[in-house]
Amino acid sequence: MPAHGNVETLVTMQPIAVDTGSDDSDGMLVMANGMLVAVLVRLSTSGHEQEGDWFVEVALGPLRAHPAPTFGDLDEATRWMRRHLRA
């Protein structure tokens, strides 16, 4: 269901383990209005330039068009997702 006007996209998250072939395995399924739009993974492998940040491991739908930064926390990630899903 697309968001219109000032109706905010409902972004929800669900923890999930993700096999990235590395130590980065703590993940979140990101749903927008009930649809899967991204998988976030916390960068836990030592030596990452952004260790501790949340990384968009997979982007789906409209999010694919936007090069994503990494996020310091999940609120920041939610705000970014909402902004780019609105278009």
Binding site: T20, G21, S22, D24, L43, T45, G47, H48, E49, Q50, F55, T70
Partner: peptide, 8 residues
Amino acid sequence: VHVHRTLR
């Protein structure tokens, strides 16, 4: 991130 994982 992928580059770092791959080099590792």
